[in-house]
């Protein structure tokens, strides 16, 4: 569904996660932050794991950068549709500017080759539009699939690219 890595399906949407993808659609990485203690958290939940507050907002002031924490190259996609059957990576990126315990995203690192992706690589957020009129597969978890496809603006996946001059 994404424009740059086809065949993987789009994200499931619900009231908690849809704003994350909508912000990405506007070119911004946002992370949930507790109003009371300031801790960030991901994936989105109703309650703060630190102080148990239900009050939170999306932090729109993060530096949009991070460090590759781990990664894998899939040399043999599970089927020929995923990335058109070609090799791809997925990665975990630890974000900068986080209050509380580390926050990591499951993501992809684009614009790297096998010899230029490594643990510790400095990266910046990029955004991979989810193509076409998107309908949530729905039915996931207690948050529920309570947002109809027509309610969703342009959405994107948060991916990463090397920071300028950071390539090995």
């Amino acid at each position: 569904m994404s424009e740059r890595m086809p065949g993987t399906g789009g994200p499931a949407l619900n009231r908690l996660v849809t704003p994350f993808y909508e912000a990405a659609g506007r070119g911004l990485l946002v992370i949930q932050q507790c109003d009371d203690c300031g801790y960030h958290r991901h994936v989105p939940t109703d309650i703060c794991y630190n102080c148990l507050s239900w009050k939170w907002h999306w932090d729109e002031s993060l530096p949009q950068t991070g460090t590759v924490y781990s990664y894998s190259w899939v040399d043999r996609p599970m089927n020929e549709h995923i990335n058109d059957g070609k090799v791809y990576n997925f990665a975990v990126v630890e974000l900068d500017g986080i209050t509380g315990n580390a926050v990591r995203l499951l993501t992809n690192v684009y614009d790297v080759e096998k010899d230029s992706l490594y643990v510790g690589l400095r990266v910046k957020a990029a955004f991979d539009p989810v193509a076409g009129k998107y309908a949530s597969p729905g039915g996931y978890g207690p948050a529920g699939a309570d947002i109809a496809a027509t309610d969703v603006g342009p959405i994107a996946l948060v991916v990463f690219e090397p920071l300028e001059g950071a390539a090995a």
Partner: peptide, 10 residues
Amino acid sequence: PGDGPPHGMI
């Protein structure tokens, strides 16, 4: 297959 999480971790 083909309907997995969007980043290809399936």
